[in-house]
Simulated assay, not measured.
Amino acid sequence: MSKKIFYQIAKLLGIACLFATFSCRSIPKGASVVSDFDANKYVGTWYEIAQIDFKYERNLNNTAAQYSLKDNGDIKVVNSGYNYVKDKWKKREGNAKFREEKTKGALKVSFFGPFYSGYNIFALDKDYKYALIGGKNYDYLWILSREKTIPNSIKEQYLKIATNIGYDVNDLIWIDHDKENPYVK
Rank of each mutant, 00 (worst) to 15 (best):
S2R: 07
I5L: 13
Q8W: 12
A10Y: 04
K11W: 12
K11G: 15
L13T: 13
I15Q: 07
I15P: 09
A16G: 13
C17T: 15
L18Q: 08
F22W: 13
S23E: 10
S23T: 15
C24D: 14
R25Q: 14
R25W: 10
S26P: 00
S26H: 13
S26V: 10
I27A: 03
G30A: 06
A31W: 01
S32P: 01
V33M: 03
V34K: 08
D36Q: 10
F37S: 01
A39I: 08
N40P: 00
N40D: 13
N40G: 03
K41F: 03
Y42G: 00
V43W: 00
W46Q: 02
W46S: 03
A50H: 02
D53H: 06
D53R: 13
F54W: 12
F54C: 07
F54T: 12
F54L: 11
N61S: 14
N62Y: 05
N62I: 04
Q66Y: 10
Q66D: 04
Q66S: 12
Y67K: 05
Y67A: 02
S68F: 00
L69A: 01
N72G: 00
G73P: 02
I75A: 00
V77A: 01
V78N: 08
G81L: 03
G81M: 02
Y82R: 05
Y82G: 03
N83H: 07
V85F: 11
K86N: 14
D87T: 14
K88Y: 09
K88W: 01
K90Y: 13
K91M: 13
K91A: 11
K91D: 01
R92I: 14
G94Q: 07
N95K: 03
K97N: 05
F98Q: 00
F98W: 03
F98R: 01
R99P: 02
R99D: 07
E101T: 15
K102L: 03
K102V: 08
K102S: 14
K104S: 12
K104M: 13
G105H: 11
L107S: 09
K108A: 14
V109K: 10
V109R: 09
S110I: 09
F111I: 12
F112I: 15
F112W: 15
P114Y: 13
F115W: 14
Y119R: 09
Y119P: 06
Y119G: 08
N120A: 09
A123P: 05
L124T: 05
D125H: 08
D127H: 11
Y128Q: 02
Y128S: 03
Y128P: 02
Y130T: 01
L132S: 02
K136F: 08
K136C: 02
D139G: 13
Y140D: 08
Y140C: 02
Y140M: 08
L141H: 05
I143Q: 07
L144G: 07
L144T: 08
S145C: 05
R146Q: 04
E147G: 09
E147M: 07
T149Y: 09
I150G: 05
P151V: 07
I154V: 15
E156I: 09
E156M: 13
L159E: 10
L159S: 04
I161S: 04
N164P: 01
N164K: 14
I165L: 03
I165Q: 04
G166W: 00
D168G: 03
V169S: 04
N170V: 01
N170T: 14
L172Q: 06
I173P: 02
D178P: 08
D178V: 10
D178Y: 10
K179Y: 10
K179H: 12
E180C: 04
N181I: 11
P182C: 11
Y183I: 11
